[in-house]
Design a protein around this nucleic acid. Sequence first.
RNA 1: CGGGAUGUAGCGUAGCCCGGUAUCGCGCCACAUUUGGGAUGUGGAGGCCGCAGGUUCGAAUCCUGCCAUCCCGACCA
Length: 490
Amino acid sequence: MSKGIISKDEDYSQWFNELVIKADLAEYSPVRGCMIIKPYGYSIWEKMQTVLDKMFKDTGHSNAYFPLFIPKSFFSKEASHVDGFAKECAVVTHYRLKNDGEGNIIVDEEAKLEEELIVRPTSETIIWNTYKGWIQSYRDLPILVNQWANVVRWEMRTRLFLRTSEFLWQEGHTAHATSEEAIAEAEQMLEVYADFVENWLAVPVVKGRKTPSERFAGALDTYCIEALMQDGKALQAGTSHFLGQNFAKAFDVKFSDKENKQDYVWATSWGVSTRLMGALIMSHSDDAGLVLPPKLAPIQVVVVPIYKHQEELDNIRNYVNSLSAELKAKGISIKFDDRDTQRPGFKFAEYELKGVPLRVAIGSRDMQNGTVELARRDTKTKETTTQEGLAAKIEGLLEEIQQNIFDKAFKFREENITKVDDYEEFKRLLDEKPGFIAAHWDGTPETEQRIKDETKATIRCIPLNNPQEEGKCILTGRPSKERVLFARAY
RNA sequence: CGGGAUGUAGCGUAGCCCGGUAUCGCGCCACAUUUGGGAUGUGGAGGCCGCAGGUUCGAAUCCUGCCAUCCCGACCA
């Protein structure tokens, strides 16, 4: 492992790339745009999955699994949905390879599929094709299903965790008897996401809805949570869609209500992906490496022994065993790094790079004095404290760290939301002080597009519970009733 | 798909203009000394110089073609 990573002030995107690689989260794969998520990175994702999965179950959802491949014909059914995804679909055309006689493996042209298969970019179509068979009556509703899956979107430009051709996610797909119920579902899941991202990733989010042009293809309304990264760019961290009856109509999914009247079913879908890893990394980390929130850190506490002789190590180990037992009883994960192949200084740097929230260093002097050295990753501070009551102290500190990194990110976010009423000022701020800009907009897609073309900033969302105020569109001067959040985004 | 750049050991690189069988650092292996912030010494292993042609007695180096990757745009969770 080479020393250090580039400073994030020097080159933010290179900093991010180096961090992902050197912290052992992921690496590039032989396939362009695809990544290998390494065990350390994957264990963070697993923690996210575990927590989210429970939240889904607690709100009445069940998991299921739908196929990776979708018949091409399914895609022709919902027009705007097709438009949204057609340009980035991987297509399976053959089902067999053969040897060409010269030692090369080639596609067997005779094994051409009758109907081509699309590798799912999202599963609405195959799921609604399936729901048709599950729903006849209002008694069959609601259907509250989630699936954990991989999806493929053939992106032109990819970035580790933020935009890869294949990514992991969960997609919830629900079916309801009424519009109101479906909207309530979409709103509920947005709340679940916001709760999860703020309380587990320690990343503050703005809850809002997308403008029509930023909506999910096929949705009537898209709700989102938007986070602000340390470089001032916004990141969409999760979306929840009210799909209306669009997919029910496309796949002819009707039900009989209590009066025996036929109506199309109302739908939602909602998802978060491994992109959350990107949000996590970019929200808290620094030039020394990752900073992980304790609640998602694969290792919450690492113990580094400092010793010269075997008996000193044995002595330390003895103490660490009892500390481990105490911490495990509290549900805290601890690693005792007794490798003799690396020196303590190396280990310190390594665990800082990997974002372990707390480090305990114990040497022979400590053993004599009944103390340890306790170092916090978030503040980079160290203190010497007694072994007595250490487990309880660690427990408290982990909670404090979780809160602290959220507070820090929250303060940064608040400091980087600026109200702007002048277009020149708007453009200047985007370059000089990136972040969210709260500005008036006349509500037209044309204005939105022009601002995007001229500044690269998009409307990230119209915040929920947005204060209403009279104002003039920043570009056209036309009347507006509320401010929307603009930013350059990932 | 346009514009730019780069492919040499696991990683980062020198050599290329001016052809003669590859440099240095990190990492790796062995041994010893070390261990409170990324250890030191000694010895060692590791290369189809992106791929395919061509020129030449001889190509990492010159020529042609291809491939791949990265950056910047258009598209996107």
